[in-house]
Structure formats: structure tokens, C-alpha cells
Design a protein around this nucleic acid. Structure first.
Lengths: 245, 245
DNA sequence: TTGTCGCCTTGACACAAATCAACCCAGCGG
DNA sequence: CCGCTGGGTTGATTTGTGTCAAGGCGACAA
């Protein structure tokens, strides 16, 4: 990925925080150590409610969390998927704008918000780093708007699978050639909420892609991708670069 | 609006740049004056092509511009609407991610990118300001994802009208009580591209809302809103706060 | 073993929105 | 005056997804 993803490991934390980048010096890292703590959440547990006062910012260390929005009548839309190393929080904002839910068991590395914000105002490159990350998220959200507004159900499914495959590959630093396989970290219903579909349509389209040989399944969750280019073509994706989920 | 929208006028520029806020001192403003210039665009003209190298950042001064994405087969999705005072550009990024098109005649106040970025790295509050603005845009994009993924055509139209009314009211500092009226700055087709619909559906739903007395029309573009709460109810909107377009 | 539960699949049918098509109207230039 | 063009409306029909309903499968507990 691009150089702006350069990041280093933060103390004894097993993941690399993208917000705490290689530009941080030893002093800064030590300050971060002092305000950091870990929190665990069980699958299904709500990490943050929309509108809640947030007392921390942080990164996902292990597990998957999702950002969702719900209408009064129960219609739900997932607006973001948080994978390990993804940043959570809104520096400079007192409250959360969306629900954050643990999809699997989740461990988060949190920084107390107040001191983190103080660091931000004295350490200009942290604000710049966060700005870059937020711009990436904004691009991703806008890409997703194209998917939600204009793609067919089949294209939506193909897009989702290829994006998870890409993120997965980036995370595990696997090579991108040959046959890939991915574990879908979401239930059919969660995929539906992400894609603006119903779970039945998701199921049907996955079956259709399987029947047409675009993917093959092993169990319900494990997907093999014999030909990534074919999948991308099904996704209707011209831009196969840069997209974050 | 919230205090983070606090902003001051920049030199002789007729609008207030939200990125150049009250925290800027005289020195900083003078630096900005030196790197600023104006550009005009005609309605329909493309301001920036996706992928182009961008040599400036700036704000819309007058007119309306739109951020769009197009698939190879021509399907289009508008991913943002840029009204006067909205910021354009991606500090820290060399290229544009989406097409920017002038919907009406547009005047932009631009800052040369390189010196602007240099100012950013020496003036921490500008990066923080931009981070806050980008977080707002991200929230708006995510709200729009709910609209695109889960709302009906009727709800989409009602949402669009109420959002334009709100932005308009904020811009002109009108009071929000009593009957409102708004000019739709978009053609039916542009609305369709924004809402993930076809222009025929847009037209039909506007007619339906008119028939049901939720809005009334004067010409094609001018909308009166007898009862804003009724419109918000039609929009299925719980959160009537904060949303930017 | 049997029952239950969560997750998933598949079928039949309904319906909202897309598609295709005709037409209206205002503005404008010749 | 005319015809033309761009934007907008409305109708008829098709179609992609949603909705409702039944059932499969694996995990787990009694």
C-alpha cells in the first residue's frame, strides 16, 4: 500500500496503529504508553452507542467491529467495517455519531481522549496523520455510495468479497497472485446490512456466483477465488486501488 | 450551527472559509492572502477530473458544484454537493479522487496547494480545523449511505429537499420557523444521480409529495414547505441535527 | 436419541422502481 | 411564425429485489 500507511508498532501492542506513525519519536511514544489501555468486548456486544459521550479513541487490535445506523422502524445500514488496525474515534468531537458493535470478540487498544487531544495539539504530525486517515475513510465511504446507489445485487456481493479479500491480503501481507481464499467475517444478515440488501438476496447472489464459477464455497463462510480479475469484473470496479473498507 | 463552524472572513473574499477559522491570527491571514487566487467556471464545466493532479485547495465562493463518480457503462453517482463555503481539496494527497463539476456558474477561492500544506505543518490548528471538517463530511457521507441503502424513493426526495432547505437556511441565516421555500439547485437528473434513482422516479415522487400537500411547487425548481416537521417525517429522519451535504 | 437454536438456502409471489415511450412547455434563433 | 432543444411530466410495462414461508444443516444440551 501507499507510503502514507507507514506505521510502527506502539510499545508492547501487537498491532501497528496507523495513527501513531513512524514520525513519532521516543518521547511521543512514551507519552502514548502512559495514556493507553486495553478493552475487550464479546461478539455482539455494543462498544459505543450513537450519541454517547466518548472518553477514548483507539484502534482495533483483534476481531471485527462494525459501524451501523438504525432507523426507528428497524431498518439498518452498516456504514463501516472495522478491521484490526482501524482507528475508532472522533478527536475533537465529544460524542459518537454511529453505533459501534463487536461482530466477533474484539480487543481494542484505547488512548484516553483528553490527553490524546492534548498531544494532537502539540504534535502537529499526529493531526496530519489523522487527517490523512480520515480522508481515506471519506474516499471509502464515497466509493461505497456508488455501490449502494448504482450497483446491482450481484455486483454488490462481488465488490464486498473482493474488498474483504484485498484488506485481508494487505493485513496478512500475503501475495496477491494465484487462487485466493477468504473467510467472510460477517453473517449473511450483516452482509445485507452493509450492502443495502436483504439476507435472502445475499444468499441467492452468493449461490449464483458459485454456480457461475466466480467463487467456490467451503462451508458457509470460507470463499475461494479462482480468478480475482473475473471477480473484479463482476464487481463492476474500475478502481481496484486504494479502497479501504 | 455548532461552534466548530466558527469562521472569519478572509481578506476581501466575500465568503467565510471554514478552514480559516477565528483562531487564525493576522500573520497567518496575510500568508493566506499571498497564496490565494480566484477561478471561475461555467455551468457544466468540469473543475477537476478524478485522478488529476491537484495544484490547489480552496472553497466555493458562489454557485454549486458536485462531486461525482461514473462507472464505465455510464452509471453515475453523485457523492457530494458543494455549496458556497464548502472546502474542496485533499491536503496531503497529490490527486483528486472524484470528478468535480460546476452545476451552476461557480467562483472558487483557491490557495496554492504547496504553500497551504506548508502552512498546515507549521500551524497546528489549521490541520485540526481540516480534520474537524473532514470528520463532518465523513458523517454526512455515512448518513447518505443510510439514505442510499435503506430509504424509499419518497423518503429520499423528502430527505434531499429538507437537507437543501437546512443548508440554505444556515447559509442565509434565515429563521427556521414558519413556511420555508427553497430553490432546488439541481435538475431532476442530477437529483436522481445524487439519490440513486432515475429522473422519472424523481419526477413522480416530487409530484406525489405535491399532491399530498407535503410541498408545493412554483415552477419546476422552487419549492415551498408549509410544514417542515411533516417533511422531516416523510424523510424518515430521526437525526435532524448536524448533517452536512 | 431428541429437541432447539442460529444460520443459511430455496421457492412463490408481490411490489417498487427501472425502462421504454409519448408528450408538454418555455426559451431561443432563424 | 416556425422548428428545435433541454428540461420536465406522465403512462404502460418489465424486472430486480423484497417479502413471506418452508425447510436444511450443524452445534449443542438434556
Amino acid at each position: 500500500m501507499q507510503d502514507h500507511f507507514a506505521h510502527i508498532q506502539c510499545g508492547d501492542c501487537p498491532i501497528r496503529h496507523r495513527a501513531v506513525c513512524a514520525r513519532c519519536d521516543a518521547d511521543e511514544l512514551q507519552k502514548l504508553e502512559q495514556i493507553k489501555y486495553y478493552r475487550s468486548f464479546q461478539a455482539g456486544q455494543t462498544i459505543i452507542w450513537s450519541g454517547d459521550r466518548m472518553e477514548f479513541v483507539g484502534s482495533v487490535v483483534t476481531g471485527i467491529a462494525s459501524l451501523t445506523q438504525t432507523m426507528e422502524d428497524g431498518r439498518r445500514q452498516m456504514v463501516g467495517l472495522l478491521l484490526p488496525s482501524d482507528f475508532v474515534g472522533r478527536p475533537g468531537r465529544p460524542t459518537a455519531a454511529f453505533d459501534v458493535t463487536a461482530t466477533t470478540d474484539v480487543v481494542m487498544c484505547c488512548f484516553r481522549k483528553k490527553p490524546f487531544e492534548e498531544m494532537m495539539s502539540t504534535t502537529p504530525h499526529i493531526a496530519q496523520r489523522l487527517l490523512e486517515m480520515t480522508l481515506d475513510e471519506l474516499d471509502a465511504a464515497r466509493e461505497w455510495m456508488l455501490l449502494l446507489g448504482r450497483k446491482t445485487a450481484r455486483e454488490k456481493i462481488a465488490s464486498l468479497i473482493s474488498i474483504i479479500a484485498r484488506r485481508d491480503a494487505a493485513l496478512h501481507l500475503r501475495k496477491k497472485t494465484g487462487a485466493l481464499s477468504v473467510d467472510l467475517p460477517l453473517t449473511r444478515e450483516e452482509m445485507a446490512d452493509y450492502l443495502g440488501l436483504t439476507l435472502e438476496t445475499v444468499s441467492r447472489q452468493i449461490s449464483a456466483l458459485k454456480k457461475d464459477g466466480v467463487i467456490s464455497l467451503e462451508g458457509n463462510r470460507h470463499v475461494q477465488i479462482p480468478d480475482m480479475d473475473r471477480l473484479l469484473e463482476e464487481a463492476g470496479d474500475d478502481s481496484d486501488g486504494g479502497m479501504l473498507v
